[in-house]
């Protein structure tokens, strides 16, 4: 009886550990890896990844593509990503620090190669109840561009542009270098 109890308890413990590991360990491991791979790059700044690093971070990004990254921190307020991109196929994906995709956009959906995305923290239940949050998203779209929210304060926005020819890289990088990522003025 006593041994059976502990065996059942151990099996339950195994199930709990399995679920906990699958849910939380990958996000933790990714956040640590992200810190290492973008070491030296300050938060709320835009930079273009090196071909060697980009496929290590983004499995769809081969060395024959250009990847721009905005590593953001919403601790000091909302962050504005101001993108300047070539007129070609591109995708923008925004992830929280734990690797959850919170927003996606591409050239067809945007209809333009120059746009702004405001990154903000998700309003808490209390803020929503009190109604003292920011203006509604519809207002933001009219005034600023697109609006994305994440419940985690830190994350990463990734712009991916595939290129057919390595000779195109300098031209695309020079256009993309005009993009910015900074804390929004109050």
């Amino acid at each position: 009886m006593g041994r059976s109890f502990w065996i059942v308890a151990a099996l339950l413990m195994g199930v709990i550990v399995h679920i906990s590991y699958v849910l939380f360990a990958p996000g933790f491991l990714f956040a640590r890896q992200l810190e290492q791979s973008t070491k030296g790059k300050p938060y709320n700044s835009f930079f273009i990844s090196s071909p060697a690093n980009q496929s290590a971070l983004l499995p769809v990004a081969s060395s024959k593509s250009v990847v721009g990254i905005c590593k953001f921190d919403l601790g000091n307020g909302s962050v504005e990503l101001n993108a300047k991109l070539p007129r070609s196929y591109w995708t923008l994906s925004i992830y929280s620090q734990s690797g959850r995709q919170v927003y996606a956009l591409n050239d067809v959906q945007a209809g333009t190669s120059e746009f702004k995305v405001e990154l903000a923290k998700t309003k808490t239940f209390f803020q929503q109840l009190m109604g003292n949050g920011r203006a509604d998203d519809a207002t933001q779209i009219e005034n600023l561009g697109w609006h994305a929210e994440t419940s985690e304060p830190r994350g990463i926005a990734v712009i991916w542009i595939p290129i057919a020819d390595e000779l195109m890289r300098p031209q695309i990088e020079s256009i993309m270098a005009g993009s910015t990522c900074k804390v929004q003025a109050p």
Binding site: F30, A56, S93, Y95
Partner: peptide
């Protein structure tokens, strides 16, 4: 993907 340090 996350365990490998890659974005999904």
């Amino acid at each position: 993907f996350l365990s490998d340090g890659q974005l999904p």
